[in-house]
Write a protein that binds this DNA or RNA. Structure first.
Lengths: 241, 241
DNA sequence: GTGATGTCGTCTGTTGACAGTTAGTTGCCA
DNA sequence: TGGCAACTAACTGTCAACAGACGACATCAC
């Protein structure tokens, strides 16, 4: 409960270290899809572009690699992470488990303000769905789930969930357009909300579990091909070079 | 478990980057408790000790910070992470959620070899418990849970669980000695195994959930005081400087 | 004597340059 | 003409040095 709404976060006027600034900048670039998955990040090129040295940039790339946003291959450089379908499914499963934990922890702790905000977000999702605004629908949906995680009051859980949501978000943002069953999603959210209002954490968790389920349909759609790595699942022995 | 005997794992003979070597070294030092929580890691001092420059060391520290093993305060340096009780509980809750997911995924996938290994580990736990060898008991217990996570076949899940287990492991290793109810733990493991053998993933998950439960008793014991950060929970409003 | 203020030392943050390796390309030979 | 090999170029990994910031101590004023 350190940050309620929007605190005056600034630690101290632009006293942030260069690594942090660069890290935040690149993170924003990646999450906004201005840097597409697979984009090569040459150290000298990026450093020159940002007008800094390679040192802080390397550290920033290291941190982003730890967050899973970039993939660093020793001696080969860094690229914006490109998931394989398998990796995406794995991340989705973990995210589901974290959200199930979150809703269990959150239900007994929810304040009236948080509960009404959940209702507002669910209503917004309905509206955006009717208007066919997939972008806005996606944002409300994301915020709905994020709020549940925040309400759980587990900072560690929040961080891990944020990382997963970030990594998958930029893919989901596009794949959502391929998804037809938005109406179903809306109904599911309302069902979850009912369980929350009733204070039934177990039922809410079960509904959420069913709600999240990996959207395999999206993964198999041909439009999603370019979003994923060509799955190098070729365990053919005898390829040591 | 990266170095068994002499695996071919190393990309190429000592071709590992300095950052990786230093990172692995420090990680081992921390996990083995040779570097106690709270130990300050001066860049110049550590660099001189290891006979390397500060550059790779800084990157290694950054990675360890991402793994949660060290805590870096800008302009203040790095220290071996010291959890507060609250942070420990939070990590425990997340670990529980991950293991519940793991057992659900693992049960339908378990090979005969894996199942027999689980039985062997459970038997070893019984033996170690009878002999009062808490150290060996702890190792078998850790391996039991780790194997379940590996068997889940979700690499992402395995990594996140490994991080959590590492962070909490060095504390649990000591706190286990304070724990009296080892017998109960043994019984719980066998109950879980029964459900696994029966192929009942849901029941196994429920048993595991009850089994893990945060050992608040340990956290409240006075002997554990030195292991934790003095919990700076001082939400006294009116401290804006 | 207590408080604030200025100075000093040590550490981190950052920079630029050097060295090693990798990948791509060109040339040569079969 | 195809394949192998050496060469070249560009990049990353590493190092040592510079500059700025923070904390501690001493000094000074009240």
């Amino acid at each position: 409960m350190t940050e309620h709404t929007e605190e005056v976060t600034p630690p101290r006027l632009e006293n942030r270290t260069l690594r942090e600034q660069v890290c935040a900048h690149l993170r924003e670039e990646i999450l906004s899809s201005r840097l597409a998955p697979g984009t090569e990040l040459s150290e000298v090129a990026v450093a020159k572009t940002l007008g800094i040295s390679r040192g802080p940039l390397r550290e920033a790339l290291g941190q982003l690699a730890a967050e899973g946003l970039v993939t660093i291959t020793p001696r080969r450089g860094a690229v914006v992470t490109k998931f394989t379908r398998q990796e995406f499914i794995e991340a989705y499963q973990v995210r589901e488990a974290l959200e199930v934990l979150a809703i269990k922890l959150a239900v007994p702790r929810l304040t009236d303000a948080q509960r009404s905000r959940l209702h507002a977000l669910a209503d917004a999702m309905v509206e955006h769905a009717e208007q066919g605004d997939t972008r806005a629908f996606f944002e409300s949906n994301k915020e709905f789930h994020r709020l549940l995680v925040v309400a759980a009051g587990n900072e560690r859980l929040r961080e891990m969930h944020e990382q997963l949501a970030n990594q998958m978000g930029r893919l989901l943002a596009k794949s959502l357009e391929l998804r037809g069953s938005i109406d179903q999603s809306v109904a599911e959210h309302h069902a979850i909300l009912e369980a929350i209002d009733a204070g039934d954490a177990r039922r809410a968790a079960r509904l959420l579990e069913e709600h999240i389920e990996v959207p395999y349909r999206v993964l198999d759609s041909p439009e999603a091909d370019e979003l994923f790595d060509p799955t190098p699942e070729t365990p053919l022995s005898g390829e040591d070079k």
